[in-house]
Computed example of a mutant assay.
Amino acid sequence: MRHLLALAWKYMLLATVFFAMIPLFLRVSSAELLWFSLWMTLVAYALGDLYILPRFGNLSAVIADFGLAFVGVWIGIGIFYNAGGAAVINAAFFSALLVALGEILFHAYMNRIVLRHQDEKKEHSMRRGLQTEIAEEFDVRSATDQEEDKQES
């Protein structure tokens, strides 16, 4: 359930950014922006939020999301609309910049709500497999040292 809510938040973030930035530079229909936002959400969530964020941290995940959004808009929108040049590059850059700024907050949410519960489950399963015995020792010297002391006296 936490992943579905996180996917919904990410979809709203990407759809909002794409609806705000891409039409400033290109003529793209709303339905196509919704589909593009859905595909970008699924890819970015799998790569950036579930793989890179837990392993490499927030800064690496933000950089990866910036690159993914830039390349996604540049190639995805540029190929489908056969648009080239400065319009697509500008749309890709400004969209990626806003996505990266939004991802900083989204990653804080992911670390606090979604990934924390996964870490707790992992720690719990690891603790159960790595239990050790605990015993109290009254004397720090070994039994052989004690026997040698008795024989000398």
Results as ranks from 00 to 15, higher is better:
M1A: 15
M1H: 13
R2M: 07
R2T: 15
R2H: 14
H3M: 10
L5N: 05
W9C: 15
L14F: 11
F18Y: 15
F18D: 03
I22T: 04
S30H: 12
E32F: 14
F36W: 10
S37I: 12
L42V: 12
L42Q: 02
A44Y: 06
Y45M: 04
A46G: 05
L47K: 01
D49H: 02
L50I: 03
Y51Q: 00
I52Q: 00
R55I: 01
F56A: 10
F56E: 01
S60R: 12
I63V: 15
I63D: 05
L68K: 04
V71Y: 10
V71R: 00
V71E: 00
V73Y: 09
V73P: 09
I75E: 01
I77L: 00
G78H: 08
G78M: 01
G84S: 02
G84C: 01
G84Y: 01
G84M: 02
G84Q: 00
G84T: 05
A86G: 11
A87P: 09
V88G: 01
A92F: 11
F94W: 15
S95T: 14
L98Y: 13
L98V: 04
V99L: 04
L101F: 12
G102A: 05
E103P: 13
H107S: 09
Y109N: 02
M110D: 03
R112V: 12
I113M: 08
V114D: 02
D119S: 03
K121P: 07
S125G: 08
M126I: 09
R127S: 13
R128D: 11
G129C: 04
L130I: 14
E133T: 14
I134M: 07
I134S: 11
A135N: 06
E136F: 15
F138K: 02
R141I: 11
T144P: 02
D145C: 01
E148V: 13
D149E: 04
D149H: 10
D149P: 08
Q151D: 12
Q151E: 10
